[in-house]
Nucleic acid binder design. Structure first.
Lengths: 226, 226
DNA sequence: GCAAATTAATGATTTATTCAAG
DNA sequence: CTTGAATAAATCATTAATTTGC
């Protein structure tokens, strides 16, 4: 899957028992939502917000934490060597950070350099770096584009999104059914719009994006019609 | 009306001396907890919420049960109006259900619609819905991320090696300019190496564009010297 | 039991990025 | 290269939960 970067989709908080990889403990979980129900008995960590991203310190060293060597040479006999590169978390974070800082199409030298550096964290070749940037760039763009055209159902698993999407629409439409006289006419005439949207939503949910009467400005919500 | 812009007067609470950026804000006197101290809390919206009671068969109606009206008008004279929205249980459940069903970044229309519907359960504004989804999405993601915390992403399949670019060019190097006398020395000799490389990289990245020892052919990476 | 003190959640704002159009 | 739109990340600030001392 590879889900690089941000991808809010596919949350799906059903308990999946997740019996796959075991991770001993969370290396660092400073803030927010330790678990849903605190009910703590012993005084835990203070909520002081931390989690700062150190911009500007040494670049690679920060990705050098505990858990590199255990990828392909810790399993005893059946050393399952993957045929293709699989970035270690450190490598991945480093690459993402480079990307974030502006690297898009590194030159041959840059690639060599990056590769050399990231080798500290595991096997890696120049082509891996090269392809990573190529792919990452393309996928970021792709993601953006998809977001632009269909803002509504932007998650729901990346699996056969076509089918899921359809189902989603139907569900939505159904559930958002008119509800008839939804009272609260405070906004005058707004009700009609609401009802329309009920219908339209399901249909146009894919390509409607316009918003005239209300909009987001500067990351702020601006209510329609003052 | 939610106080756009900044206040003019200085007046910052000097609780922590640390040189953080000051944020002009409302005076914000002594932090009082909940009720009992009507000090002043920028009482914005009037307490005129008249929750409507309506039964329907649509999505929202199911969250309609007993306990709306008791939020802001049971205390007699000092109607302590909360300064921020606090979702009623019905509103919250509805929002969560929408989220669960896939709504992540509702469009302006969707927000308007949701808001209109949820108003049945109590005071609510478009921005509340907007912020709720923004926060919820972010925090779910955060939670996820904390859980995983470097799960070794697997596979990098489906390269889109299709559209090929023959020549592999340099286009950005600026980010690697030496500059930064990476002050934050902390680690031992290892850091030295990294710092050196930083410098070297910056220099090379800027000055050398030619690539003799490594090159790209047909959109493929070819490592230098066998 | 209760109310101050403390801690956890979470609503609301601000800041940074990203892509791409001009 | 600059700028606008969109939104994610980070942060601030307030409210709810809870702990705690009486």
């Amino acid at each position: 899957m590879w889900m690089v970067g941000y991808n809010d989709g596919g949350e799906d908080h059903h308990s999946f028992s997740s019996g796959r990889k075991l991770r001993p403990l969370i290396p660092r979980g400073p803030v927010m939502s330790s678990t849903s129900s605190p009910n703590n008995t012993t005084s835990t960590t203070p909520p002081s917000s931390l989690s700062r991203i150190h911009h500007g310190t040494d670049f690679f060293s920060q990705y050098h934490n505990l858990e590199q060597s255990k990828r392909e040479f810790n399993t005893s006999p059946p050393v399952v060597v993957s045929s293709r590169w699989n970035p270690t978390p450190e490598q991945l974070r480093a690459l993402e950070e480079l990307y974030r800082r502006g690297t898009r199409t590194p030159s041959a030298e840059e690639i060599q350099h990056i590769t050399a550096q990231l080798r500290r964290f595991g096997k890696i070749e120049g082509k891996n770096v090269f392809y990573w940037f190529q792919n990452h760039k393309a996928r970021e763009r792709q993601k953006r584009r998809r977001q632009m055209e269909s803002p509504a159902p932007d998650s729901l698993d990346k699996e056969d999104l076509g089918a899921s999407r359809t189902v989603f629409e139907v569900e939505q439409t159904k559930n958002w059914a008119p509800s008839t006289n939804c009272s609260t006419l405070a906004e005058g005439g707004f009700l009609g719009l609401v009802l329309n949207i009920h219908v339209i939503w399901g249909i146009c949910g894919l390509n409607t994006k316009s918003s005239k009467s209300c909009r987001l400005l500067q990351n702020r919500w601006v209510d329609p019609i003052g």
